[in-house]
Simulated scan of single mutants.
Amino acid sequence: MSDDTSGRYRAGETALLAVIAESEPLVGPWRQRFDSSASAGVPAHVTVLVPFLDIERVDAAVIDELRTLFGAHAPFTARFDTFRRFSDVLYLAPTPDQPFRALTEAVVARWPEAPPYGGQFAEIIPHLTVAYSPQAQVLDEVEAALTARLPVTADVAAISLFVSDGDRWHCRTEFALLG
């Protein structure tokens, strides 16, 4: 997903996301204020892969391959109890993070033409974005308001394929983690 604050996304762009619904009561209001993807229809999540293939490449065969690929992974529980930061991003770090990394690595091994974040970053760092701001005091405020309400624990049992229409993201389908 585009990390800008314009709220505009490329039509046909896709993303594979582990939706973390359990975190919405905690982070949802802050994401609405400080993460443009929230108002574009993206729920709280840990990204498995973005961008994935353009939607015109996601045919029945790709859907079947994704179903098989994700189905080979077991569901797991993740705990979000620690805030961390990138330069202008406040996020919750999942524990363990290895199951998220394994999912990303499996998709990239099958579709190497779709590296995480378009190849912008060398390391995969699973995270649940809470707020973007170039002002550190804004991130400090969000972190202070939420820290006492941690942890959030989530059962990750599916990965969702989201598609952008240029303004909003829509869940196209889900793939169960079956193990």
Rank of each mutant, 00 (worst) to 15 (best):
G12D: 03
Q135P: 02
S6C: 01
G7M: 03
W111N: 06
V156P: 02
A109M: 12
M1V: 14
L16S: 10
G7V: 04
Y132N: 00
T82I: 10
T68S: 13
H127R: 14
F162C: 01
R172G: 03
L92S: 13
V46P: 02
Q135K: 15
A176F: 10
F70H: 03
P134Q: 13
T147R: 15
H73D: 01
A102M: 14
R10N: 07
I20H: 03
V163P: 01
F83K: 05
V89H: 08
V62K: 05
V27L: 05
F76H: 07
T153C: 05
G41D: 13
A148I: 04
A72K: 12
W111P: 06
F80T: 03
M1G: 12
A18I: 03
R31I: 10
G179H: 11
H73E: 03
G118A: 10
H45C: 01
A38T: 12
L128E: 02
A18Y: 04
Y132W: 02
A176E: 06
I125W: 08
I20T: 00
I125R: 15
I63D: 13
T5R: 10
V46L: 04
Q98D: 15
T129K: 02
L53G: 06
H73C: 05
P25K: 13
L178S: 15
P96M: 04
A144R: 13
R67W: 00
A60T: 04
Q137G: 07
A157Y: 08
V163A: 09
Y117Q: 13
A11Q: 12
Q98K: 14
T95D: 11
